[in-house]
Nucleic acid binder design. Sequence first.
DNA 1: GTCAATATTTTTGTATACAATAATAGATTT
DNA 2: AAATCTATTATTGTATACAAAAATATTGAC
Lengths: 221, 221
Amino acid sequence: MSSRRADSVREALEQMIVTGDLVNGERLDETSLSEQFGCSRTPLREAFQSLAASGLLELVPHRGAFVRHPDLGEMIEMFEVMAELEAFCGRLAARRVTTQDLADLCKTVTACEDAAARNDSDRYYAENEKFHHLLYKASGNGFLADQAKQLHRRLKPFRRLQLRVRGRLQQSLSEHRIILNALEQGSEDDVAAALRTHVAVQGGKFNDLMASYKNFHLTGT
Amino acid sequence: MSSRRADSVREALEQMIVTGDLVNGERLDETSLSEQFGCSRTPLREAFQSLAASGLLELVPHRGAFVRHPDLGEMIEMFEVMAELEAFCGRLAARRVTTQDLADLCKTVTACEDAAARNDSDRYYAENEKFHHLLYKASGNGFLADQAKQLHRRLKPFRRLQLRVRGRLQQSLSEHRIILNALEQGSEDDVAAALRTHVAVQGGKFNDLMASYKNFHLTGT
DNA sequence: GTCAATATTTTTGTATACAATAATAGATTT
DNA sequence: AAATCTATTATTGTATACAAAAATATTGAC
């Protein structure tokens, strides 16, 4: 854990943005925020830089930092890329996965099912994230894993919305099993296909996403 | 063009890093660099943040900013991802490309061939970059296009190395034609396959890359 | 009353000053 | 002489002060 003030400010701001606490287009005032965080403008501005790099803020020279929430179209674009990245991870993993990886993945899938059965949503999200991170790692491509992790993180708030939809959770769980089975059999195409349907926003998922998006506290761009 | 000092410093530093002017692992001293650039540490540190976000620097708390060149393994990983991203761009483009896009692409391919024939390497690189950027745009997925552009930019210095290899340039040119043809015919699979072989580091390309990598002024990690 | 030009204020960008942490060198002990 | 602890130095992190740019308000002309 870094004791840099700038880092904790970054995290706090990120939280405020992804939870919708800060609405789209809002300008972040340096002075008032620095008062709120009890620090000077310097660490705040460092946090701005970092957030802008991950696309959560837009820095306009001499005008300030503006909150940038993806609109529905961008969100779909991001899911489209995420699906492809995960499918590629899966394809590589099908070739390179170790028995240890498989054991870890299996354990996590079970933990996920268990958490869902107990309605322990926090644990469900944690285990679900672990499952995906393990998959990325199993690809054997560290750079790919990093990229996937980054995007996965960025899509976190929206995935949460999707899973509120009735029946989506059970479906998601069974998809985990399908992915795992395909991995064990080492069939690249099956793994890739399973992951595409697991992640992609298509068919009914599109309508679900649109509905939940509207319920989210985002102002349209 | 932004008149922010921090931005121009960022660009200058990036150039120094990718050209190998700054070797791997080197620590960037804030005071001496700020003297060199004739500015204070503040804009310099902003540039550091930005460069760290794109992976060119590693920021270690209370210890400084360290130049981070990818080693051969990471480079291959990045090319592996680049190939897949481009293939996906191509796949989408095959479905969504407009006649205008095709015309622009065709013009750029011709310009590329022309530049190569005249041994105008600067223009060749410019037109080649344009070709790829047009392809990303033709995917109709703005987020994907951004991601692809970012990675393409990061791989720029290494691509330059690869093209020094005898015969590689002519091959690259003919691959452009193949890609363009496949796009015109709208066959997703052909476009994707053509782009994978165009970008991926495989077969003979691997040895070429390894040889040129060693010639590069990088210290091993 | 509306528009335009100018003055004022506000806000961002940069420089500098200070504080905190890590690296280094030197002294002390075994 | 080697190792360890301490004092010193150097370097990063943060706060504040100043400069430059943009936004806003005010004044004047039509």
